[in-house]
Nucleic acid binder design. Structure first.
Lengths: 191, 191
DNA sequence: GTCTATATGCGGATAGAC
DNA sequence: GTCTATCCGCATATAGAC
């Protein structure tokens, strides 16, 4: 729909993103994709090895979108403000692009090229975390933050604890993480 | 297999737990269940409305198992030690009972009775968190911790960041959370 | 009443003709 | 490259044997 594509791959992925937004991951089938594209279901196999390959490509696309979102959120803010903005952008992405986020989070065997999109996202996160936690603890702090955000997003999507206000819990955890991350860079009491 | 059951429901769930451990959630089908039990696939519908009902029952069973694990871990330890032990027990459960943990985490419409198992687990967690964070902030602190554990478990299962040692990140996040939770109970600077 | 047997419709995936 | 035709497994619904 969006634009006349040159390759079949891009046409297929564009249709897949449409159906993803419409009916979630379960609402997307090879048959429905082919039907929307006006081809036989089997023609898809000329461009993707199987359904998993399509999902992997969508996952990479999701990584690119999330990277763009957190990069824009960080902007040129101060380290702490940037991370707060990134965390909020992450939650917004998980909420508003739920289906793509779902595919992004799926454990799927990525091709070399698809994995690059995920690595680029991760590198940016670590880079931003390094600014407040320092080189030494950046990676573990980043993994910790990433895990927390993922968990909050999962709880929010599952609609559990709705009476416990996930937003409040989000702030509690984020503040706890920021305090610990900032402490990494403070001068130690004893060398 | 385990024991001669009186009701068909328990026999079916026992077989389901077996297949869950063997081949994960995807490896369990109504056909394979019936085959193992020596009955026709359709006989299962006498005891469960559909596959989702079986999964809901398994989810409740997972909640009971996890509750038993964290309760045992907490024991009669001090508040902080109890929560550390519970977090470790959670991770062990997610690692060693991966398939049951997966079903437990699934968003599925639970029956009244199945939901009780989840509520019991959650009540115990909040109870333990209250001991170190106090009544006022217990719920948001508990949700925050639960989200973090869920995220770490997800990252560990996805086998991402394996070079970044999830265990180290687990400690980083847990310490950050404990620091924040303990601070809730400290006397405020100003009333 | 409980299970067997069978049928429908949905997935993904493959083979071979054009 | 795309098609038609087909296979297999899945959940599900109905009808009938005992």
């Amino acid at each position: 729909m969006a634009y006349p594509s040159k390759t079949g791959r891009e046409l297929i992925l564009a249709a897949a993103l449409e159906q993803l937004a419409a009916g979630g991951l379960g609402g997307m089938s090879l048959r429905s994709l082919a039907s929307q594209l006006g081809i036989a279901p089997n023609a898809l196999y000329r461009y993707f090895a199987d359904r998993a390959a399509i999902e992997a490509a969508l996952s990479a696309e999701g990584a690119r979108l999330l990277l763009a979102a957190v990069r824009k959120a960080a902007g040129r803010k101060s380290p702490e403000a940037a991370l707060r903005a990134m965390a909020n952008a992450y939650m917004r992405f998980a909420r508003e692009q739920g289906s793509i986020y779902e595919v992004l989070m799926m454990r799927c065997s990525l091709s070399e090229l698809d994995a690059q999109a995920h690595q680029a996202l991760w590198l940016f996160v670590v880079e931003q975390v390094t600014r407040i936690a320092g080189e030494a603890k950046a990676r573990e702090a980043a993994v910790s933050l990433w895990a927390f955000l993922r968990g909050i997003a999962a709880l929010e999507q599952a609609e559990v604890f709705n009476d416990d206000k996930p937003i409040t819990s989000f702030h509690f955890g984020l503040n706890a993480w920021l305090t610990a991350a900032l402490a990494c860079k403070l001068p130690s009491v004893s060398v």
